[in-house]
Design a protein around this nucleic acid. Sequence first.
DNA 1: ATAATTTGTCTCTTACAAAAGACACATGTA
DNA 2: TACATGTGTCTTTTGTAAGAGACAAATTAT
Lengths: 266, 266
Amino acid sequence: MQDGNALAARLDIGPGEDRISVSREKGLNRVLHILEFLHTTQRAVGIGDLAKGVNAPRSTTYTLVRELVDAGLLEMAGDGNRVYFGKKLYLYGMDYVRGNDLLRRGRQEVDNLSRETGETSELCMLQSGRYTIVHSSPGTRPFRISSATGLQIPLPWTASGRLLLAGFERAAIEDMVSEDDLVLPDGRRLRLDDFIADIATAKATGHCITSGLVDAYTKCLAAPVFSAPGKVEATMCLVVPIDTSEAKTGELIALLRGRAASLSIS
Amino acid sequence: MQDGNALAARLDIGPGEDRISVSREKGLNRVLHILEFLHTTQRAVGIGDLAKGVNAPRSTTYTLVRELVDAGLLEMAGDGNRVYFGKKLYLYGMDYVRGNDLLRRGRQEVDNLSRETGETSELCMLQSGRYTIVHSSPGTRPFRISSATGLQIPLPWTASGRLLLAGFERAAIEDMVSEDDLVLPDGRRLRLDDFIADIATAKATGHCITSGLVDAYTKCLAAPVFSAPGKVEATMCLVVPIDTSEAKTGELIALLRGRAASLSIS
DNA sequence: ATAATTTGTCTCTTACAAAAGACACATGTA
DNA sequence: TACATGTGTCTTTTGTAAGAGACAAATTAT
């Protein structure tokens, strides 16, 4: 039985009313953070670390994790006291795939494409304002250029990003692109206006090629998949060595555009 | 549906006092119900219907859905005002697969098996006390026997169920199996003791065959996948016509056991 | 051994989310 | 024209979940 601390809550020090109010967070938000955190770590995490990682109180984290484990969204990882994603999430994910023609066919097409061309191929989409690699297939080069599925990269770094933003107003684009996003991995800084101009060009030509943006050795070729006339729902892209010949590049772009078009609706 | 919160403050027992108090639900629970509901409907649902389906107040449902859509766990389905699973869930699901060797290899092996034998093949697991088809591959028969991924079926109806319960105490088994579960689709009622005996047999022989349980036309062959000596983590199973010859059945069981063993750890 | 962490569970309080319900605006149909 | 039925956004009220903190037990370090 708790003695003393009865009115402990008297922490709002000072007369000044500094409303420190360490904002209490909604359980659902905490859960969303937990999922996102696990997604970035890509490995099972101890509950204590998890609490630190999402900076939630330990007690809260324990309760939430227990509930999520009971629900099957998370699972205790075999070895000890770590948690990671659970079967339920896998099942829901498969439901999503099943209900989503585009994704289903897109995955297939990406696999075909990378088998046929030997290059790394990817299906990309906007995911709540962020560029996301939804599916990727490695290609057969000795030094393969790979990127993990689910990876999130700033829009301006990619060819696909330029196509995905084709339908948006300038204001919306500014919203989605932070200052940091405009700084390329090598430190160069992209001008927002240039980026927006790129988007317009991409929209007009119906494809996009970027060279040496994410890294110095690769070129990125992308073509749009439409869900309705003018609405870019996804892109397919090929990642090729930067010294790929003009001719070869043109050939690949043509192939890519064809495949992307075949996925488009109407 | 597990109704995790079980306790639900059964305080109404008081004297007169009918404490109707339609227990206010935690947001997280509402979300879990929403996900589960979408999983069972397997299609996009209007928000109003959703509210009815999980029997939550409309206003609450609207807010939750909005939050989930913002988070990318749900998406508004293209056509109108319906929601369904979102890309995030797919990504998390893929993370699960990646972090789970067994599932990854199991899917592969199931696909191989159904291609080689021409029969429907499945990978099954316990999912918070319920039997779940985690992956299935259709087979090539004209009248294919198919079952949806993620489908949940009472444990006593299946061969896999008998193997999955091999490691459990009687008490634990009684917990997982409800009275209803013991009633087969055709109305016959299984004795709990017989079922438990079946489990022991399955454990001893290292495989299980059931005939005409879920339907009158099929036989189900299953073999265990171990995650540690004695611990059944999953099963692989084949669904074949009930009139498959003894010889052929034996042959398939041998194949199945081999494949399942190859997935087992240590 | 003894201290210093970390882990998992429990209790108590109050800030805040869930619910109720009112509103405005669409639809459809007698 | 009324009259239900569905949708989406508000505001207000109040039951309760999130959080702080105290513990015991289990690890690890000294």
